[in-house]
Computed example of a mutant assay.
Amino acid sequence: MSTLASNEKAFIAENSSLKNENRVFKFTIEQLDYYNDSILEKMNEVRKELDIKDKNLKQMQYLLSDAQRKDSIIFRDTLFKEPTLNLDTIIGDKWYQMKLGLRYPSTIITEPKFVSEKYIMVDYKKETINPPRKCWLLRLFQKKHTILKVNVVEKNPYIENKNSRFIEIIK
């Protein structure tokens, strides 16, 4: 019953006009496959691309963000001869857009925008603490520990992930 209440509060927070807090949804694998939410469907596709087994999946995350800035360049000399010049155009694709504006007599306005779409998948696997033995029977009795593996998939081809670090707090 607490899972139901937790998910209800997470849906309310997500659909609220106040976007200053995020809550964690709690779903089973069956529920993930059942719901028709577009973001959940994309997350499931990435999970299947990474070939993560259902039983090893710990957590899935989705981040969508964009960055943009507006700049104006004003020259002292006249650049454009036509006094009625007021040109606006957009150059780009799904991941990058450049709004370009030209104004009489000497103004150029640029507004670049980048969209970042990240999928973060956390799964685990058990590995032996010491190097694995050559004989499979002896490997069965070796001590094992759980290793968390984090996969970050950036869908924007223009963005390169340089560095990342993940820390698990243990109690």
Rank of each mutant, 00 (worst) to 15 (best):
T3Y: 07
A5R: 05
N7W: 00
K9M: 02
A10R: 00
A10V: 01
I12C: 08
A13V: 05
S17Q: 10
L18G: 03
E21T: 00
K26W: 00
F27W: 12
I29L: 07
L32V: 03
L32A: 06
Y34C: 03
L40F: 11
E41D: 07
K42P: 00
K48W: 07
I52F: 04
D54V: 05
L57A: 02
K58D: 08
L63C: 08
L64G: 01
S65F: 10
Q68W: 04
I73V: 15
I73G: 03
I74C: 05
E82W: 05
T84G: 04
N86V: 01
N86T: 02
T89F: 05
T89R: 09
I90C: 08
Y96D: 01
Y96E: 07
M98G: 03
Y104M: 04
Y104E: 09
I109W: 00
P112C: 06
K113S: 15
V115T: 10
Y119A: 01
Y119D: 03
Y119W: 05
I120S: 03
M121V: 14
M121N: 06
E127I: 13
E127V: 14
N130L: 12
P132N: 10
R133Y: 13
R133L: 15
L137T: 14
F141V: 15
K143D: 09
K143M: 07
K144E: 15
H145S: 14
I147G: 04
V150C: 13
V150L: 09
V152R: 04
E154L: 06
S164I: 11
S164K: 12
I167Y: 11
I170Q: 12
